[in-house]
């Protein structure tokens, strides 16, 4: 599935790679700290879409959490770029539920799920687990 230019080595410990993309470093740290899924390991964090795409080009993650409203490049454009680089990437959009249409726009570009801000660690864990489970079902 993955395009040829984006095939990076899997982690030696067999875990899936996670990239966190959010302009708030509080949220970034919250996600890192509260991540309770053994299978995932954070390999990169990005404060805007541009950084995310650059980091992703160097080493594509398997799973990405994505904010929508960010400077430089917003989440919608970023999702579009990431999916182009690696079509089977799993993207969880994490944003405030002020405008459903915007969230739907991000999903149209290829994101796989949505988690509403603010979220608890349990909601985050459940959403990421569901994201990984959904991917398993599709195979």
């Amino acid at each position: 599935m993955a395009s040829a230019n984006a095939k990076a080595e899997p982690l030696t410990n067999g875990k899936l790679k996670l990239m966190i993309c959010d302009d708030s470093n509080i949220i970034r740290r919250k996600i890192e700290r509260e991540l309770q899924i053994e299978r995932l390991q954070v390999i990169a964090t990005a404060a805007n879409g541009k950084q995310a795409v650059e980091a992703f080009r160097k080493e594509p993650a398997d799973v990405v959490t994505m904010d929508i409203t960010m400077p430089e490049m917003d989440g919608i454009e970023c999702v579009e770029n990431l999916v182009k680089i690696k079509p089977d990437v799993l993207i969880l959009v994490i944003s405030a539920l002020s405008d459903k249409a915007t969230a739907i726009e991000a999903l149209k570009k290829g994101a796989n799920g949505f988690l509403c801000k603010p979220f608890t660690d349990r909601q985050l864990t459940e959403a990421l687990e569901e994201l990984l489970r959904g991917a398993g079902n599709d195979d």
């Binding site: 969880l92 459903k100 739907i104 149209k108 994101a111 796989n112 799920g113």
Partner: peptide, 26 residues
């Protein structure tokens, strides 16, 4: 209506995880 049709179209697609988009059901 437009948002709703977009949402339904998403469900027909393969990428979206059904359970993870319930909250944005317009």
């Amino acid at each position: 209506l437009r948002t709703a049709m977009d949402y339904v179209a998403l469900l027909w697609g393969e990428r979206v995880n059904e359970k993870l988009v319930k909250t944005i059901n317009p």
